[in-house]
Design a protein around this nucleic acid. Structure first.
Lengths: 178, 178
DNA sequence: TGTGACATGTAATATGTTACATGATTGA
DNA sequence: TCAATCATGTAACATATTACATGTCACA
């Protein structure tokens, strides 16, 4: 039976274990909780089972590393795990897979359901939301300035957010014109 | 029992019904299938049940509109549905909710797991992927040039994609420098 | 007349979320 | 010492995906 492809969450967890050396489930969870991204909630109910699945598939392995009286297992990636990670990174990136999703854009599609005044309010809030978001990224960036890959990811977010702000400005023009 | 908040998919479906007048489940499904976005697959197994849930909550109502011998139901939004849609649009947009997710950024985080040569290849493919993506959006845009909101959404995607291309270029510089 | 796309679904499955449970540690 | 937080989970639940099933229509 050919193994199912890894889910997005499993792949990202695998990546976390790969680049952050041996890590406990909680350490992985922390990364999700601290991340400004909302793609995953970082819920324990997703991460602990996912790590077990990865271990069953021999993509990670765990060693007991209790701190004090508390039991803990630290996961590290296996050679097979590295191969799987590389395969995921190089996943044929179909056009759809390359789509960046913007929740504000999605909502914009239905803005005709609001009154013109409410539309303007919405644009104001959307703009504030993007700015607040950028603030979160700056904070996260300051806490991870040592990792150049993370810095590059943050650069992506900032560029996207700047583009979104210009988009909001453009939308404001069009909306007030109508 | 206070109703659970609508899921993202339910909200978007509600929006589709709102702006596209009475629509059959298949018509809604078509919108997802034709959309360049990959946020939802447009699977029948998600849409038909979601529409039934919306109808149970009286947010949409359906009327039989058979075409020929084939049974069909056209859904339209109710006043309560409009209220719910407005509530979703104006959902307190928390910073996390405003986060635009980029699958390429996510992968970039783990690019240190690839060899320098593979990294360069990855960047090439990522760039091609974004360009192909923009092509899809252009096609979709051409088919929906009548809807100014859709046009605005496409403008968002194009701006984001341009920002991503510049980001890739920046990444190329940093990576070749290291 | 038959082949393929259109249209409407259902079933099985997997996964992620929320909420809960519990013991360990820290610090006021 | 007592409360809050850290850390490790588990259980119930809802929902989205893939795959399947079925009838209808266009058209070659």
């Amino acid at each position: 039976m050919p193994d199912r492809p890894l889910s997005d969450l499993e792949s990202v967890i695998l990546g976390c274990v790969a680049v952050s050396g041996p890590a406990t489930a909680y350490a992985v969870r922390r990364m999700f909780l601290d991340s400004p991204s909302a793609r995953f909630s970082g819920s324990a109910g997703a991460i602990y089972p996912a790590l077990r699945r990865l271990e069953q598939r021999r993509l990670v392995r765990s060693a007991a590393t209790p701190t004090g009286a508390r039991p803990a297992r630290a996961y590290s990636i296996t050679p097979a795990g590295r191969r799987e990670l590389r395969a995921w990174l190089q996943t044929p990136l179909t056009p759809e897979a390359g789509f960046a999703d913007d929740p504000l854009r999605t909502r914009m599609l239905f803005l005709s359901a609001l009154s013109p005044a409410a539309r303007r309010t919405w644009l104001d809030e959307a703009e504030a939301c993007i700015r607040a978001q950028t603030g979160l990224v700056d904070d996260h960036d300051a806490a991870h300035s040592d990792d150049p890959w993370m810095t590059l990811a943050h650069d992506n977010t900032r560029r996207l957010n700047r583009a979104r702000l210009r988009w909001i400005a453009e939308a404001r023009k069009l909306i007030s014109g109508s």
